[in-house]
Design a protein around this nucleic acid. Sequence first.
DNA 1: AAAACGGGGTG
DNA 2: CACCCAGTTTT
Length: 362
Amino acid sequence: MDWQSDSNDIEITFAPTLEQWYSVHKRDLPWRHTLDPYYIWLSEIILQQTRVAQGKPYYERFVDAYPTISDMANADERKLLRLWQGLGYYSRARNLHQTARYVTEKLDGKFPNTYHDLLKMKGIGAYTAAAVASFAFGERVPVVDGNVYRVLARVFGITEDITTTTAKKTFAALATRLMQAAVDPATYNQAIMEFGAIHCTPVAPDCLLCPVQQQCVAYLTGRQHQLPVKSKKAPVRERFFSYVVFQQGGRLALQERVARDIWQNLYDFYLVETDEPKTALRDIPLSESVSSLVNRGTLVEAPVEAMQLLSHQRIRAYFFLVDLPETETGSLPIGLQWYSLAEISILPKPVLITNYLAKQFA
DNA sequence: AAAACGGGGTG
DNA sequence: CACCCAGTTTT
């Protein structure tokens, strides 16, 4: 009989057990039919902080629009952002384009094939480098994403706050040990994430049918719902946007957002942000040039109010539609340009703007 | 170490 | 409404 405790056995059996579970339960997803690092990388960028169900249609559209990394490298960035529209975290799209160009132009189209080199690419951090390195090249490096934090915290009873640096090291070290026992690195990485995504879920883990039930500290001590420990994030910031929508004929004045703020490189209207909601145009501080332009036009009815919830901001927006007569030929404030509705339809825009356009100009 | 960065699904 | 999603970059 073994005189040692069984507590170490789980570190040996964990990976193979999940690999076996995965062989039975894995979902059929489009990026699981390829070993091409370009497609795998694309899928991983899309899936950052994004659910599979939300990302899948975007993946299909991107593969269709840019079948090769060279196609993506040669893409018009505005068009790429338009394709990304609605997915959020738009720096992902800009970094996607930058890395596609870098690989195509500087690396002769050959995608970096090690964890170490992948990490150097814009938009690729520890998670994505491990994912691409293992899925496309079979490198034995563990992925540590939100699913992995949850599964490991529960099975191994780790009570450290997963938002802290020390906890990240704890989980990474454990993940590296567990990877050593994996039969196949790619399969094990897919397996632990899939297990977290569809079985060991945040609110209602299916403990009764769990393949590691008898080794799971959380289950054995009834703490499934206390793990992982994650400190609360700061309350969302409230913001008040007043948009002045200049209209002339069938055209609207839009601008590209260039500030270091949300929606960088997307298009919206002339914007004034205030500390309080402003429901009347005359209460909004406008520059002299904009004010005089407003005075030469006519305000079209009451402002349209809209609310946009982001994970970190709550934006209340008021849209003031100002109609300018055709006789008015003065120039627009700096940054603004006239666009027809057809042109606007192909510009990348925040959901807030897209929703307004649909409501007002359907 | 903490904040910033989207939008949508889920219970 | 609160939580969280195949995280990364900037401050």
